[in-house]
Computed example of a mutant assay.
Amino acid sequence: MKTVCKENQCAGCMACIDICSKKAIQLVDSIVAYNAVIDENNCINCGACQKVCQENNPPVQMKPIVWKEGWANNQVIREKSSSGGLATAIELAFIKNGGTVCSCSLKEGDFLFSFAYTEKDVAKFTGSKYVKSNPKGVYKKILEKLKKGEKVLFVGLPCQVAAVKNFVGNKENLYTIDLICHGTPSPKILERFLNDYKLDLYSTQDIRFRVKTKFYLESDQKRFTVPTVIDNYLMIFLNSTSYTENCYECKYAKQERIGDITLGDSWGSELPEDIQSKGVSLVFCQTDNGKYLLEQTDLQLLDVDLERAITWNHQLHHPSVKSKQREKFLNAINEGKKFRQVVLTCYPKRYIKNLVKTILYKMKIIRGGQVRYCIILTERI
């Protein structure tokens, strides 16, 4: 098997697919890893795919020049967002000032990248997405818009931002936001989880993975657990069990960032609890373009201690650590076993504990609000 980058280290950015004039590259998803596989019968050995690959050629990463925590002053934006609403607020301001936004949303069971041209269009991008997305085809469209002199804001994971930069080159009108990422699973993992409930990912209209600091999966307003228990999909995700192989060696898990702006959650914030509960975002700014994005947006930004912010976001100093149960979990999933059975096998104590909590809650013996989880503090079993 001839691959664009080192075997099993493909991030799935798909820039190589877009740049190949002979359509000789196919993305292979084994659940354990992604691989961009080259069809040697069609390949003309031009080397374009290797050059554009952000795994082979990561662009220059920059130290932050500004670091803040805060939220969108528009309370509706803040309320609807997973965190403080900074991404949505910046996107809306960018469009209002004549630009176009490119980011990810769910469409027909696939987490695809598309463009927002109006303030109304931005709503489709709202919310965290704890699954691998599909940028195929978007790179050429971004380059076309930039060549026409249009301003484009790309919002995605660091590996995707790096891929955009490699594909389009140094373009004045390109603005980028990278999101602090702890790793992403194959969409097949999400599909298998939904299958336990006789649901089909490709028939799903809407998926939510969290609300503020409360992590739970909701599909078309159907929730999979009682409020005191985290669902199996997110329990596995938060334990770093389900990511593809490349995520554990991520080149972008460091303080130096790839985007004009970096956005994430302000975990460990010292602000009062009533403010944190409404959502607080962490923002790093690396460039003058980043400063422009912040200055044109109606935000409440406060000083934050840089070292504390990094300490509470491990992805700012090292990649996620692979769970000891990962191989066992993914092998069982690949063998076709039901998701909940695999979770029970790999994490019996956690599974049984959650089952007991569910029964007690339904019997009204215990009550309470949502279980709150911070990614970096989640117990690793």
Rank of each mutant, 00 (worst) to 15 (best):
V155T: 14
C102F: 10
V161D: 03
G183I: 07
C159M: 02
T176N: 10
C181I: 07
E172S: 11
V101M: 07
S128L: 10
V131Y: 09
A116I: 08
L143C: 09
T176K: 07
E150N: 12
K151W: 01
V122F: 04
T100P: 05
A163L: 01
K151G: 01
L112D: 05
K140C: 08
P158C: 03
Y139N: 09
C159Y: 05
K132I: 13
K132Y: 12
C104W: 04
K147Y: 00
S105P: 00
K171I: 00
K124F: 06
L153H: 07
Y139S: 08
L146D: 04
V122C: 11
C104G: 03
F115C: 08
E144T: 15
D110A: 13
Y175I: 01
K136C: 09
T176Q: 06
D178R: 08
K107Y: 13
N166P: 02
K124Y: 02
N134D: 15
V155C: 12
D110M: 12
N134V: 10
D121T: 08
T176R: 06
E150Y: 01
S114R: 12
Y139C: 00
I177L: 01
K141R: 15
L157T: 15
V168K: 01
G137N: 05
K141E: 15
A163Q: 01
I177D: 07
V164I: 13
K147P: 00
S128F: 11
S128E: 10
K120F: 12
V152R: 06
V122L: 09
I180V: 15
S105T: 13
I177P: 01
A116S: 13
Y117W: 11
T100D: 13
K120C: 00
